[in-house]
Design a protein around this nucleic acid. Sequence first.
DNA 1: CAGTTCATGTAAAAAGCTTTTACATGAGCC
DNA 2: GGCTCATGTAAAAGCTTTTTACATGAACTG
Lengths: 232, 232
Amino acid sequence: MNWRKDQGRERGYHHGNLKEALLQAALDLIGQKGAAGFTFADAARMAGVSPAAPYRHFRDRDELLSSIAQRGFEQFEQVLGGAWDDGRPDTMSAFERVGKAYLAFAREEPAYYSAMFESGVPSDANPQLLAVGERAFGIIRAAAERLAALVPVGTPRPPAMMMALHFWSMSHGIASLFSRGDAARRKLPMTPEELLEAEVLIYLRGLGFPTDRRAEAAEPQDKPAGPWGKPK
Amino acid sequence: MNWRKDQGRERGYHHGNLKEALLQAALDLIGQKGAAGFTFADAARMAGVSPAAPYRHFRDRDELLSSIAQRGFEQFEQVLGGAWDDGRPDTMSAFERVGKAYLAFAREEPAYYSAMFESGVPSDANPQLLAVGERAFGIIRAAAERLAALVPVGTPRPPAMMMALHFWSMSHGIASLFSRGDAARRKLPMTPEELLEAEVLIYLRGLGFPTDRRAEAAEPQDKPAGPWGKPK
DNA sequence: CAGTTCATGTAAAAAGCTTTTACATGAGCC
DNA sequence: GGCTCATGTAAAAGCTTTTTACATGAACTG
């Protein structure tokens, strides 16, 4: 049977780039029908190969899923890292960007987000997945550490790790309850971004940060020159 | 073929309570293999009937799943409602109970929690599911409203609805990231309960609540005698 | 109590997915 | 040109889902 029907020109017996095509197809399918609905055979069909072909590149359906989760975390790390930008031009506004970037990723890449957090793929399915997940969280933790250093004296200062977990759970909670593409979205009196921003603001106020949004610029050079150049 | 092999005594051609048995079986299976892994045929087998029998009680696999989600929300409503107990003996401690109850439910009933929030069942799969979901959230919102009434004067007081959404997303974020039975649990420097309690405490401090845990008892009789009797 | 009815179950079958095994192809290499 | 091995295909077994026709017996009905 001819599997590569009419999708572009024939490429002959060998596909040439099947692994990539399968990853892309699976991503599309997850986006359309959810992580649960996606089918190995469907991905093969979409790539124009026989149902057995994918087994040359992935041990089974789960390995394909975890590969997508891994790729998702890689992009996630990029996005969060870019948003954080080592805390430039100042910790507070960079931090705010990270939050927005988190929600933007969940909204714009629901297929990746779904594979990463809602597909049932264990976070330690393979060492690389675990590692890249840690790196992504590491960005949130780095931001939390910089924020922790700014907590006004006289206020109880929780461990930076705990703050990072708080930020992560706030973001993930909002993303998974309200910021997804599917019909699970509840009707909100505001956007998820506004909801998260308000939540973080109240939380930071609870840590003693000044309540005025403008006061955030007053970032003291508390540590004598970290590894980051001064913002120009 | 004899479907009702050796599980207890024979009950003859008719099962007698198949719907209930299927719901129970499905719940067990979801608990063991996750919402994605659970199979309609498996539930039938576990109930001791033919693979076609479940179709007499559920339109398809999805309807069984959403029935479980609905039942889960009913229990959730009970648990949260019991914990809230109309804010007795005081708003703050009752509120704290609700948070603990939320996480306890997620941990002790992972199968229900999974069907409710991670199975891909749309929140409006049927009107009753939507309704009971709203009622459960309504408890959180009621608590948020009572808390909002206690926000000290001079502090910006966010809409109670927004506070409720914040509490929900905090709880759900922690539950779904850290408080689940499966291997997705990350290693934490503290329990999920402690994590949530700290998060809520900081948030409340951000709303102007006294930071001292003991000060919480000082709840003014702000409204002249609500519908709740005074705690004995 | 006999007879009928109807909800509830079974059997069988079609269609599709997963995964394995044996075989086919052809790209890259001596 | 001829090997060799990665990469595809075909075929098959064993699942699941879902439908259709038929079987059973519990509960009315007269």
